[in-house]
Design a protein around this nucleic acid. Sequence first.
DNA 1: TAAGTCATGTAAAAAGTTACATGATTCT
DNA 2: AGAATCATGTAACTTTTTACATGACTTA
Lengths: 189, 189
Amino acid sequence: MIPLDYALLGLLARAPRSGYDLIQHMEEPIGFFWHARRSQIYPELARLEAAGYITHTTVAQRDRPDKKVYEMTEAGRAALREWVVAPLRPPADRDELMLKTYSVWLADPEQAVELFRAQEQLHLERLAQYEAIAARMEGSAEADHLRPGAPRFAAYATLRRGIAYERGYAEWCRWMAAMLEDGADEQRR
Amino acid sequence: MIPLDYALLGLLARAPRSGYDLIQHMEEPIGFFWHARRSQIYPELARLEAAGYITHTTVAQRDRPDKKVYEMTEAGRAALREWVVAPLRPPADRDELMLKTYSVWLADPEQAVELFRAQEQLHLERLAQYEAIAARMEGSAEADHLRPGAPRFAAYATLRRGIAYERGYAEWCRWMAAMLEDGADEQRR
DNA sequence: TAAGTCATGTAAAAAGTTACATGATTCT
DNA sequence: AGAATCATGTAACTTTTTACATGACTTA
């Protein structure tokens, strides 16, 4: 069982869905912190089914191709429940921008400033996107986004982290750009 | 050229080193944001050499196995310089704790609290580690950690990001634990 | 005497990406 | 007429991890 399996089970714990449907949902809420391609997802669904964690029913549709609707078995639900609280191995630290930063001292400062400004922009855009979704949840009638037993709380919690992350990242990019600009000025003088 | 190649070049741009040496240095400064195993690093060094980005000299040692000391060629330096300011593809968003969080609504709250408390601890430890290194740099005689053309600035910049990241992550873990505790209390009543 | 450090690798398996492949319907 | 959406996959390749393999010297 790889993390992707739990990503898929996490979606199916909320509602039965087709493979195509799962792929869409892997983009929007889960895609913020976990990613996979269709070419990995389709075979993985077959494996999950072979392992007994999910089952499918083929649904014929008028005017559209047939689809396979997957739903979680009791075994799937149990596996997910267990994994959620299982200890983690130290996270896979991978941030290509940090890797670039480590060698930024030999870059042309003006090009580097552009890079960090562009990254700042990207993180500000994501921040706005997350904040919009969070605001919608906070403003909704039923306040179950604060009830830990509710799926909406889980989604809300990941958003909170996303918001802090993007805000911090954007701020740091701005600091980097400013530092590099000062450095370029000094070099020119 | 995969990012790991630039991680290795980033180290060799500072000083010539043996493979073993590079592996150590991949742990301490670069390991904070990029990771690779020896079994990937050794073959990768051979590939970098075949491509003309690095060369090695075998150094015999008394009482120790021979070692290969690698140094960067001009081509390697040029490749690194270019890559540093090359645009990035959207980052590989992978955080297993967020994936767990997405399904935390069906977990046992008390076990979940433990998980987040443990994670908070882990991030606080890293925070302390980064802060210690940053404080050492800030207190040092030559203040080149603020001069963008200096390798030490590059390392300092990554540390600044690490500090903000760990602090934010630890805070969020604490919020999660608190939310889950309240939820567990309510369930018990 | 046992564990740790220095030193370099290979083999096999797993995970993930890119490209290929098809085809009907609906919207602009 | 062309692009987008619904719908499911396979093949080949690249990247990464895990396990295997060796051996001398140093420190507790």
